[in-house]
Amino acid sequence: MARCPATLPTDHTTCAGPVAVTVLDADNAGADGCEHHAARLLAVLDRGRVFALPHAPAGAAHRVFKAEAPQGDSLHRLADAIVTSPATTR
């Protein structure tokens, strides 16, 4: 089953609804995603932002922003799953 571009590599959950938002990181690199995967991606980004796509249901970006962040160990596993480009320095 195809999943949205916002799905982290180690996240094996299915999408919850259509692609509705764009999540951007501090460098404006982004991915479109369903609300479920966008919230998970946003939770592991430093200074991430979320924007509703034009066809998104009302309140989509707000729901993603307010979604609970993963707790404890799972947050660290999600953070480790983010793939950065070789040009990215930390």
Rank of each mutant, 00 (worst) to 15 (best):
M1I: 04
M1E: 06
A2K: 08
A2L: 10
R3K: 09
R3C: 07
A6D: 05
T7W: 13
T7R: 15
L8A: 15
P9D: 11
T10D: 13
T10M: 02
T10S: 11
D11V: 08
H12E: 05
T13R: 13
T13C: 08
C15W: 05
A16N: 12
G17C: 09
G17P: 04
G17T: 05
V19I: 15
V19H: 05
V21F: 00
V21T: 05
V21G: 11
V21W: 00
D27F: 10
D27Y: 13
D27L: 13
N28V: 07
A29F: 13
A31K: 06
H36L: 14
H36E: 13
H37Q: 00
A38I: 02
A38E: 08
L41M: 11
L41F: 06
A43H: 08
L45N: 02
G48K: 09
A52M: 03
L53Y: 06
L53T: 08
P54H: 09
P54K: 12
H55S: 06
H55K: 03
P57N: 01
A58H: 08
A58M: 06
A60G: 14
A60P: 10
A61T: 04
A61Y: 00
R63Y: 04
F65R: 15
F65T: 02
K66P: 00
K66T: 11
A67E: 06
E68M: 13
E68T: 14
A69V: 12
A69G: 02
A69W: 01
A69S: 11
G72E: 07
G72T: 10
D73M: 05
D73C: 12
L75A: 09
H76V: 04
R77K: 13
L78I: 03
L78D: 09
L78F: 13
A79N: 07
D80N: 07
D80Y: 01
I82E: 04
T84I: 11
T84H: 14
A87C: 03
A87E: 07
T88A: 12
T89E: 12
R90W: 14
